[in-house]
Write a protein that binds this DNA or RNA. Structure first.
Lengths: 107, 107
DNA sequence: CGATATACCTTGACAGGCGAGGTACTGCGC
DNA sequence: GCGCAGTACCTCGCCTGTCAAGGTATATCG
């Protein structure tokens, strides 16, 4: 929801990478998965999602390839790279850290 | 630290309000308090702090008055308003919510 | 045939964070 | 007496991430 959007700002990259840790995926599917795991409480806006893909690919944390487009709309699949995996683990630790800090500051 | 800066983005307002819940305070002191409670792990940049004050005052969540400047540099004190208190409690709940969402998305 | 769902993408505006720079006063050491 | 560190405030302008709005194309179902 829009309520929490500002607070989750900055976590988009990690959230996307988390899904790519499981398996290669594409934009639409990732977004559906996020909605599913949060029970509809959160979703990425398309513009946010695709600008994140561009950012992540430029950083070398993901790579992309076109899926088989013999049927249906073509899909651009993304795969996480080794450095992307390292970045993900690091981001998760930073999240744990940030969480502790914010919890300490909001008594 | 710069590491967590992006992740805490968006929590500046709540963090400031949290300190004003205890007592009226001024910029410099609030920042020192944040550094103290986080053991130096986090600090607000001055520009961030003062732009937040402007934002919060415009929103009617805090009010300001000049402290006694008979000695030392003058201080502008800030006090939280009733609507600011309501906003603070609401923000804290939203943080709990956002925390749950992010935890669910970063397994 | 039109609506809906899938699936992608771009543009441009906006807001928050912050580096860099500035002001002014006090107290300390040399 | 002078410079420096600490206290305390403030502004300007850039950068980055988000997202509303708009666009494209295909498959399915009634």
């Amino acid at each position: 929801m829009s309520l929490t959007a500002d607070l989750i700002r900055g976590h988009t990259d990690s959230i996307i990478l988390a899904h790519l840790m499981e398996k290669d995926s594409y934009g639409y599917e990732i977004n559906k998965a996020i909605q599913a795991t949060t029970g509809g409480d959160y979703e990425l806006k398309e513009a946010t999602l695709y600008s994140a893909f561009r950012r992540l690919e430029q950083a070398g944390w993901i790579s992309s390839y076109w899926g088989d487009a013999t049927i249906g709309a073509r899909r651009r699949y993304y795969a996480i790279t080794p450095s992307g995996q390292r970045f993900y683990y690091q981001s998760r630790e930073e999240w744990q850290h940030a969480k502790r800090i914010i919890d300490a500051l909001l008594p």
